[in-house]
Amino acid sequence: MSRFPVEDAQGLRWPRRPDRKVLIHWCFKDAVAENNIGKTIENAWATWARGLGPAGAANGHNLHFQRWKSPKELSYPYCFMLPNVWDPQIPEAAVQVHWMENSPTVGAASASTGYIANGPAGRHNLMISGQATDQEKDFAATHEMGHVFGLRHEHERSDRDQYIIYNCRNVYGFAEALGACMADDNTCTEVMLCNDRALALKYNFGGSEFISYNIAPEIPSAYDYDSIMHYDSTRGSNDAIYGADATNPSLYPMYTVDATGATKFLKLRGHHPFPLFMVSAGDVSMIRAMYPF
């Protein structure tokens, strides 16, 4: 999502301790999650830590992402004592990290965005599913961790159309979603489907992940093509459209045009194993601005 922090109605983010430390606790939902994505979560935080450096004045941030453990215990407890029963010793604001089997109704990964001051235990979550390949899941977890910290997709910034070209028709499932929408409501249009997030979600249209947020960022920043929060040209693409010419960027959902007018692919993301990817300098600057020392 675009690169600015998300706040609740009271303007609160993750609570800051007297020592200025912003401590985001997390826990695995259960042993299944730890067994399947334990190393993935470790690698994701290591990627952020590699870019940010240790918390402190020298690196300009005080963000800590720490698995919760009681000082009295030797082992780390899981978020839930029993199915649907949150372990009362774990802070309700802790991030629930969980894993899901392959399912046509879930994507490769997802996460809640930013801090919500009030709500049920487990309201902050990070999920990796079996749809994420071994080569993709470390990158996916790093991206989703950015959401947990409060970052939105870069390509959904309100000013993104000044930097990239987005063609909603090239997103997989567009024709089917538009047909279903028009069958239910004869006033439904392409413009509505491509710009109304709730409508896109109603028809399970992946274009919901490309709709820009019509709000200015709280923390202004230069557009960052290299951000871990930016999708590449291939995300959401429809092989029935680009199959005839896979080397043509204009047949994909997002692309750029250079000074000569030539179309260019956005940087390929998420296809490199850990540690062959990193967060961008812009990502680091944003975290420093959101979680200053």
Score class of each variant (00 low, 15 high):
2 S>H: 15
3 R>E: 15
3 R>G: 14
3 R>I: 13
5 P>I: 05
6 V>A: 10
7 E>Y: 15
8 D>L: 01
8 D>N: 05
9 A>T: 09
11 G>P: 02
11 G>C: 01
12 L>F: 14
14 W>G: 02
15 P>A: 00
16 R>F: 06
18 P>A: 03
22 V>P: 11
25 H>E: 09
25 H>P: 07
26 W>Q: 05
28 F>P: 07
30 D>I: 04
32 V>D: 15
39 K>M: 08
42 E>S: 12
44 A>L: 06
47 T>P: 00
49 A>E: 02
52 L>M: 01
54 P>Q: 12
55 A>F: 01
56 G>D: 06
57 A>E: 14
59 N>R: 02
65 F>T: 09
65 F>N: 08
66 Q>D: 15
70 S>Q: 03
73 E>Y: 10
76 Y>P: 02
78 Y>K: 09
79 C>G: 09
79 C>N: 06
80 F>Q: 15
80 F>N: 15
81 M>W: 14
85 V>T: 09
85 V>F: 07
85 V>G: 07
86 W>F: 00
90 I>N: 01
92 E>C: 14
92 E>K: 15
97 V>I: 05
99 W>S: 01
100 M>T: 15
102 N>T: 13
103 S>V: 05
103 S>I: 06
104 P>H: 04
108 A>L: 08
127 M>H: 11
128 I>D: 03
129 S>E: 05
131 Q>S: 14
134 D>E: 10
135 Q>E: 10
138 D>E: 06
140 A>D: 08
143 H>G: 04
146 G>V: 02
146 G>S: 04
147 H>G: 03
151 L>G: 07
152 R>Q: 12
152 R>F: 14
153 H>W: 04
155 H>W: 06
156 E>K: 06
167 N>K: 15
170 N>W: 05
172 Y>P: 07
172 Y>F: 14
173 G>I: 04
173 G>T: 00
174 F>A: 08
176 E>L: 10
176 E>A: 12
176 E>M: 11
177 A>D: 01
178 L>M: 06
180 A>G: 10
184 D>N: 00
187 T>A: 03
189 T>R: 03
189 T>L: 01
189 T>I: 02
191 V>L: 13
192 M>C: 07
193 L>H: 08
195 N>D: 08
200 A>L: 05
205 F>G: 05
207 G>F: 00
208 S>W: 12
210 F>P: 09
211 I>V: 08
214 N>F: 13
214 N>I: 13
217 P>D: 14
221 S>G: 11
223 Y>A: 00
224 D>R: 00
228 I>H: 10
228 I>M: 15
238 N>I: 00
243 G>H: 03
247 T>F: 13
247 T>Y: 11
250 S>G: 13
255 Y>N: 01
255 Y>P: 03
256 T>I: 05
259 A>S: 09
264 K>L: 09
266 L>G: 06
269 R>I: 11
271 H>Y: 12
271 H>W: 13
273 P>M: 09
274 F>T: 04
275 P>Q: 07
275 P>E: 03
278 M>W: 13
278 M>I: 14
279 V>Q: 04
280 S>D: 02
284 V>Y: 07
286 M>W: 11
289 A>D: 05
292 P>Q: 08
